[in-house]
Design a protein around this nucleic acid. Structure first.
Lengths: 195, 195
DNA sequence: CACATAATTCAACACACGTTGAATTAAAGG
DNA sequence: CCTTTAATTCAACGTGTGTTGAATTATGTG
C-alpha cells in the first residue's frame, strides 16, 4: 500500500522477499495467526501480490517450509563419519547446529508451531522429518528389539529441548550456551543406544 | 439451535456442559482453530449462551485450562515418599499417569497446542506448570551447579514424549504400552540427577 | 398467584480474513 | 518505437468470526 500502482522500477526479487517475510511471520505466529496481510506488510507489498506469486496461503506456507527438509542428507553423512560410541554427541551437535542457523530456525519454528495447531502440511512435514531422521537413520543402529521406540525417544528429547529453548524460551535453557546443553543431552541420547 | 427459545425445563448444569465441550474442542483444535460456534454445537447450545456464562473466548479458555494446574501438589507428595534412587521412575510414572486421564489430557493438550500457537494464557500456563514442577520441585534435589538446567532438560524429555505420543501421535510411540515407555525414559531422567 | 430473575435462543452487527478481477506501470522483444 | 508480457496496486466481495441486545420461556420468591 501507499506506493504508486504498477510495475516497480529496476528488477527486484520481490518473490524472494515475500518468501523471507513469510518465513519470519510464520515462525513467530504459527500458521493460523499469521495473516496474509501481515506478511504483505512485512514485505512492503500489496496482499494481492502474494496471491499472484503463490496462489494461496497454503501454497505460501508450503514454500516457506520445504527448505527445511534438507537435513536428512546431512544426518546421513554425519553417521557415516562417526564411530558408534560418539553418535549421541554427534547427533545432538548436528540437531542444534541446524536450529542455530537463523534461516533454518524460522522454517523449523514455523513447522513446530503450526504442527501443534493442527495444520496438515506442518504435521506432515514434522512426521516426515522425524521419520527420515529417527526411524530411517538412527533405529537401524540400535541393537535392541525396541529400536524404533528408542529412536523416537531420542528424537523426543531433542524436540522437547527445541520447544523449551526456541519456542517457549524458558530460562535458563533458552540462554544457555549450546555446548553446555550438548554436554548434558549427549550422554542420555547415547545411553538409548547402549543399555 | 433448533430448540425453542427461553429457559429450559428442569435444572441442567449447562455451564459445566459448555466447559466440558470447550475442553474437548480446545484440545483437538487448539485455541485459534477452536471456534465459539463449534464449542456451542458440541454442547448443543446457542453461541450467545457461552458469552452469557463466560463473557469472552479468552475467559472460556482460561476456565478450560485452570483445572490442570493442580498437579503441582501431586508432584510434591510423590517426591516426599520416594528415595533418591527412584525419582526418575516415579517422576515418569506420575507425569504419564496424569496424561493418561482423559479429562486432564484434554486440558494439557489444549495448553500444549495453544501455547505453541502463541496464545498468551497458554504460554503462561505452560511456563507456570514447568516452573512449578521442574524448577521448584526437582532442581533442589540435583547436586550440581547446573541443577536448573538439568531439571529443565528432564522436563524437556517428558514434554517431548508428550508431543510425539499425544499431539502428533507418531508410531510406534503413540501405541506403545505406558510401562514400556516409562522403563526406557526413567533411567535417562535418573541419570540427570546423578552424573 | 404475581412478579422478579435467571436461562436460553434469535437475529444481527462490525470486523478481519483470504481471495479475485480489473486497472496501472514498467520491462522485454522484435 | 511499438506491442506484448510481467509486476504491482486498488477496490471490492463473500465468508466466518467474536460479540451484543432484545425477545422468550422457565424457575424461584414473597
Amino acid at each position: 500500500m501507499s506506493r504508486v500502482a504498477g510495475r516497480r522500477a529496476g528488477s527486484p526479487d520481490t518473490r524472494s522477499e515475500i518468501l523471507e517475510a513469510a518465513k519470519g511471520v510464520f515462525s513467530e505466529m504459527g500458521y493460523d495467526r499469521a495473516t496474509i496481510r501481515a506478511i504483505a506488510a512485512a514485505a512492503r507489498v500489496d496482499p494481492a501480490l502474494i496471491h499472484h506469486y503463490f496462489g494461496s496461503k497454503e501454497n505460501l506456507f508450503a514454500a516457506s517450509i520445504d527448505l527445511a527438509v534438507i537435513p536428512t542428507e546431512l544426518i546421513r553423512t554425519v553417521f557415516a563419519e562417526s564411530d558408534a560410541g560418539d553418535i549421541g554427541r554427534r547427533l545432538a551437535e548436528v540437531f542444534f547446529t541446524i536450529w542455530e542457523q537463523p534461516e533454518a530456525r524460522d522454517s523449523l519454528l514455523g513447522i513446530l508451531r503450526s504442527a501443534m495447531g493442527g495444520e496438515e502440511q506442518a504435521v506432515a512435514a514434522f512426521r516426515q522429518f522425524i521419520t527420515a531422521a529417527a526411524l530411517d537413520q538412527i533405529a537401524p543402529l540400535i541393537p535392541f528389539p525396541d529400536a524404533r521406540l528408542r529412536a523416537l525417544l531420542m528424537a523426543s528429547q531433542l524436540v522437547g529441548v527445541a520447544m523449551t529453548r526456541y519456542v517457549v524460551r524458558l530460562e535458563p535453557i533458552a540462554s544457555a550456551r549450546l555446548e553446555e546443553i550438548v554436554d548434558l543431552v549427549a550422554p542420555r541420547l547415547q545411553s538409548y543406544l547402549e543399555r
